[in-house]
């Protein structure tokens, strides 16, 4: 995009700045719209599985429900509890929301369509997602209330536990793709399975990692069945109990932006990102823009997320911890040995 602005007769430095700002807007604004629509989709899918109608009053088919909710929340009063720690209480939702948007900088939407094409892209995502826990802990502590505090404790333990196994799973991907750059990882998946399919997920060695990553991403975003942080029957609404108005809305938007991010990561890391699923050019697969393939994959994973939310009962806390530390951690560690051994025997055999 920088070249276009330069060709319009702009100073290169200015062109870079303007292009970056345009890129940020091009990602953030559609993302916000997508979050609004995805909340609607989540409620519709959930309702359909429970044989209900879901939102159907505001706008055609209830399409404008999220916007109505947003407007309502915007017009409410922000209530700060008297014994709350004012500064941190207000900063916490801002942290959650900002962090949810930050990670999108390194997501490749098409070949070369990345805001920041850095060669530590995957590490950047790990670093940013490890920041997400602060919004939760701070909101729980600053509310100065029992339920939010319990929830914050649970959430931080849960996020740290699953980040460990996610880190090991990502090492497997990095070993296979031979790069930390997100675009390189996608390109490494071209014709991965016998030159036929464009996805790491179809590799028998990597498929278990794909499954573990999907489950870990459910836990990382605190979605059902791992939504112990906002278990209504025990903790009212978890860390958001004391929040109202826009500060509540920021949590809400940040949470769904994170869910979308995790769906995107599943698509990009294991299922070929912006590549068409098959590497055969019988029908003009490759003429369809990569963005459409990526969006289709993201929406598919979002459907899986909603499906799981509607059908799987909530885990107990000790089961959650056991799954993270005693199942995923050892398996992902063993898998690193397996993958590096396999690569030593095949790719690097000399």
């Amino acid at each position: 995009m920088t070249e276009t602005f330069i060709s319009w007769g702009m100073d290169p430095n200015w062109a870079w700045g303007v292009a970056t700002i345009c890129g940020i807007l091009l990602i953030a604004l559609p993302l916000m719209l997508a979050v609004a629509m995805i909340i609607y989709a989540d409620r519709k899918i959930w309702a359909a599985i429970a044989l209900r109608r879901g939102p159907n009053v505001v706008g055609p088919f209830g399409l404008l429900q999220s916007f109505a909710d947003g407007l309502k929340v915007f017009l409410q009063e922000t209530i700060i509890p008297t014994s709350a720690n004012r500064g941190l209480f207000l900063i916490a939702p801002i942290i959650t929301f900002t962090v949810a948007l930050l990670a999108w900088a390194v997501i490749p939407f098409n070949s070369g369509a990345v805001l920041a094409d850095i060669n530590v892209g995957l590490l950047y995502i790990l670093a940013i997602s490890s920041l997400g826990v602060y919004g939760v802990i701070l909101s729980g502590w600053a509310s100065n209330s029992k339920y939010p505090f319990f929830s914050a404790m649970r959430a931080s333990a849960q996020m740290i536990s699953y980040e460990v196994s996610i880190g090991f799973i990502l090492i497997g991907i990095v070993l296979y793709a031979d790069s930390f750059n997100m675009n390189e990882i996608v390109k490494a998946q071209i014709g991965h399975g016998f030159g036929l399919v464009n996805a790491f997920g179809f590799n028998l060695l990597l498929f278990p990692l794909a499954v573990m990553f999907l489950i870990s991403s459910l836990a990382e975003t605190a979605r059902a069945p791992f939504d112990l942080t906002e278990a209504e029957s025990e903790l009212v609404a978890g860390y958001q109990t004391e929040y109202s108005s826009m500060s509540f809305a920021l949590f809400w938007l940040g949470e769904y932006a994170n869910v979308l991010l995790m769906c995107t990561l599943n698509a990009v890391l294991f299922w070929g990102g912006w590549l068409p699923p098959l590497n055969i050019d019988l029908i003009p697969w490759f003429d369809i823009p990569g963005v459409i393939w990526l969006f289709a994959k993201i929406l598919f994973f979002f459907f899986v997320f909603s499906w799981v939310k509607a059908t799987v009962p909530r885990y107990r806390y000790d089961q959650l911890m056991r799954l993270g530390w005693k199942v995923f951690l050892p398996i992902s560690l063993i898998w690193i040995f397996l993958i590096s051994g396999w690569l030593m025997l095949t790719r690097y055999a000399a």
Binding site: V120, L123, Y124, L126, A127, I128, S130, L131, V133, E163
Partner: peptide
């Protein structure tokens, strides 16, 4: 690389 590790290990 060091920058990202600093964030992951110390901040995270």
């Amino acid at each position: 690389f060091i920058a990202m590790l600093l964030v992951i290990v110390y901040v995270g």
